[in-house]
Design a binder for these strands. Structure first.
Lengths: 245, 245
DNA sequence: GCGATCAATATACACTTGTATTTATAGTTG
DNA sequence: CAACTATAAATACAAGTGTATATTGATCGC
């Protein structure tokens, strides 16, 4: 029965998202650098360049170690043609992180779909997160890696995505409190703790194989339950203290 | 009264550590690369090179972006002299991470000293951790940053240090259970959750100013309490289930 | 059909990088 | 003191980098 709390909690905490910004950033980048409203015909698109960059990033290679020429070579264009799409490698990286954010929201949406079929929302959410980690597009991996490395712009982009995730989760915690009567101690803090924990566990799953990753999923689920239980217990105690006073 | 649990928990969870390996790694590195038992006289030591590297690493620059020549320049030696001390920049990086591990144990020791004077062990431990983050030697910063970036060797070195931290914490959780009767649900998992959370929060504190960092410390303390409360509640429920069966 | 236009390439240049080889220098030892 | 030796510096080189400038080649409006 408690499980239902978690179901609604995590899985739906990811809730409405999606489709807010779409392909805006990449498009704007392109039009800015080109400075023209109508591009004649570009055989290699900005997306192709981003794909080339991703394909160069191994399991643990940071974007900051990519060179402009290397990316251009992988995409099959002359080095200078890179400038038609991005001013910098940094600019491409920011676009990559934006795409990773979209990927993250895809995770959320997928978790919601699974929710209707399975039992535990925690499980399905965490599993969806981990699945996305080793999907074909490795955007989520990249996002996690560039969290601590990279210049200001990267980290801001990453932070934006995580904060977004966090706020959705907090809103859902508050909503859940009204529905079920199980209060959460400090919803914003609880959401932050859960988010950071999932991200940290996900990052450490980057190296590992399938079965170790499954183990990690189980661990993460239990950890989240601990936080939820603790938060609810502290909420209950806080109200009791207030009553007795 | 509950606070005393936490006091013993976190602060002492860091317990005995220290002085296990000392300066071994750096020394061995040097003797291997030099291949000689008695160095004539080297005005610039391996430690000087490591210091130079650290001074080059800004707030968010990864070690993998340092060039051999750059480090040598900063240390004031000829590029080729670098080889007298390390074979690679990678080798220097591993030595740096070892040093960071020692720094981490220093944090622990400091937390234990504070413990005898103050009230909350959680607070003093977290504060010690954060203090170490912006101390003169930025080894802890480096360790956190290289956690996700860098080659195999780096991440293994980082993992070693964190696992060590984790195991100490788990042992202390188990010990606490016998002393106070407050059981912990899965001590190893609880220790892992707390460790990862503190590390994640610490990493995100890298950017921020003093007052924001103080806020982060407060948040981290509450988060840890949530985990502890949840773990204890789940332990209690588990035993109750076993009894009623 | 034909200049105009602009995306894509080619060439060029001034750097930086890692390292191999050579030269000078200072410390130890006979 | 002189001869030796290990070390630090100097020089050199091939490779790779970001970008400025010049060149091609296709597409479109007239």
């Amino acid at each position: 029965m408690y499980i239902y709390l978690y179901i609604r909690l995590l899985a739906a905490g990811l809730h409405c998202l999606g489709l807010s910004r779409g392909k805006v950033s990449v498009k704007s980048v392109e039009s800015v650098s080109a400075g023209v409203e109508k591009a004649r015909k570009s055989q290699v698109t900005a997306q192709d360049l981003m794909d080339a960059a991703v394909s160069l990033l191994g399991a643990h290679r940071s974007v900051s170690t990519l060179s402009l020429r290397e990316i251009a070579r992988e995409a099959g264009i002359a080095p200078n043609s890179f400038y038609r799409h991005f001013r910098d490698v940094d600019e491409l990286t920011v676009a990559l992180i934006d795409q990773a954010g979209r990927s993250l929201r895809g995770v959320v949406r997928e978790a919601r779909q699974r929710l209707s079929l399975e039992r535990s929302g925690i499980r399905s959410s965490v599993e969806a997160f981990m699945d996305q980690l080793d999907s074909d597009d490795r955007y989520l991996q990249i996002l996690l890696r560039e969290m601590s490395t990279g210049s200001e712009a990267f980290r801001h982009a990453v932070d934006r995505e995580l904060t977004y995730f966090e706020e959705e989760l907090r809103d859902e915690l508050v909503r859940m409190e009204q529905l079920t009567g199980h209060a959460t101690y400090e919803p914003a803090l609880t959401a932050k703790a859960i988010t950071r924990l999932v991200v940290a566990m996900g990052a450490s799953a980057n190296d590992q194989g399938a079965e170790q990753r499954r183990e990690l999923v189980e661990q993460t689920i239990v950890m989240i339950r601990m936080i939820m239980q603790g938060s609810q217990a502290m909420a209950k105690r806080a109200t009791q203290d207030a009553d007795s006073r």
